[in-house]
């Protein structure tokens, strides 16, 4: 027994030494984030609907493991109740995000997406940006995804087509998604870990925060900012939306006219044709 343990230990030591020697030229491979990203890419590729059913459970497991690796690099919030709420909301959001891309039925995708949005809104609320959180829920979950659902439910009542049930370019999308997550995490980890980083240096002191987003009247402050400092952008966006609205009504009116013209043409043709 002892011999076996010793052998395992020895093998492990040899392997780790080999590993360090191997990877010393590529320091990226020594980072946990790299392996997290690789796991994530593999997991997402397995999880994406590619036609067959094989490997989806393994994919889900790999994804969870990868998320664990990423999460282990996140700083502790200092208070277990806060940490718990954060883990819960973040977990719901990320898992719902994975659900959004891995479901076969578009309706389920939309529902997972709305859950991800709810989680995002919760995270915003948790970090004190209550207006942003509620607005996310109202605008995205309450309006946009509901419209998605309308279209999805009305579009294919007899069942979904094959090309809607599989993901296109599963490999490329899994890879690019993992790379994106990796890059973002690296940047974030860098920001959190180095004490002289720009974000930490620029973090507002408590009194400044009390005047800013965490003030009890922060919606009023936000409104004031929107209608003074950012007035031009607000107006431009308003005009943009108006143009979209006018365009939509114009398309409908145009279509009505062409329909009428088509009907008239058909009617003329029928009258002209011999009885």
């Amino acid at each position: 027994m002892n011999l076996l343990l010793a052998t395992i230990q020895e093998t492990w030591a040899t392997w780790t030494t080999h590993w360090h020697v191997w990877t010393q030229h590529v320091p990226m491979l020594q980072s946990r984030l790299t392996w997290g990203a690789i796991l994530l890419a593999l997991g997402m590729w397995l999880l994406l609907p590619r036609g067959g059913r094989r490997g989806r459970a393994a994919g889900a497991l790999l994804c969870v493991a990868a998320l664990g690796v990423f999460a282990s690099r996140l700083p502790f919030l200092g208070d277990w109740s806060h940490q718990g709420v954060f883990w819960l909301l973040a977990g719901v959001t990320v898992v719902a995000g994975l659900g959004t891309i891995s479901m076969r039925s578009p309706v389920y995708c939309a529902l997972w997406f709305s859950l991800a949005l709810l989680g995002t809104g919760g995270l915003f609320l948790f970090s004190g940006a209550s207006f942003l959180g509620i607005a996310t829920v109202i605008v995205y979950a309450g309006a946009i995804v509901v419209t998605f659902l309308f279209v999805l439910m009305l579009a294919q009542p007899e069942g979904n087509a094959y090309y809607d049930r599989i993901s296109w370019e599963a490999m490329a999308s899994a890879l690019s998604g993992a790379v994106l997550v990796f890059l973002l995490s690296v940047v974030l980890a860098d920001t959190f870990n180095s004490p002289r980083s720009t974000l930490a240096a620029q973090a507002p002191a408590a009194p400044a925060l009390a005047k800013g987003v965490l003030a009890p009247e922060h919606v009023a402050t936000l409104g004031g900012q929107l209608f003074s400092r950012y007035l031009v952008s607000v107006e431009v966006i308003g005009v943009l939306l108006l143009v979209a609205l006018v365009g939509a009504s114009a398309i409908i009116m145009l279509q009505g006219r062409t329909d009428a013209r088509g009907r008239a043409a058909r009617g003329a043709a029928e009258e002209g044709s011999p009885q």
Binding site: L118, G121, S130, F131, I134, G142, A143, H218, V219
Partner: peptide, 14 residues
């Protein structure tokens, strides 16, 4: 709750 009315709206849209 500073966004009480908005919260009501969000939930009625849910």
């Amino acid at each position: 709750c500073d966004v009480g009315l908005l919260y009501i709206f969000a939930l009625s849209s849910i």
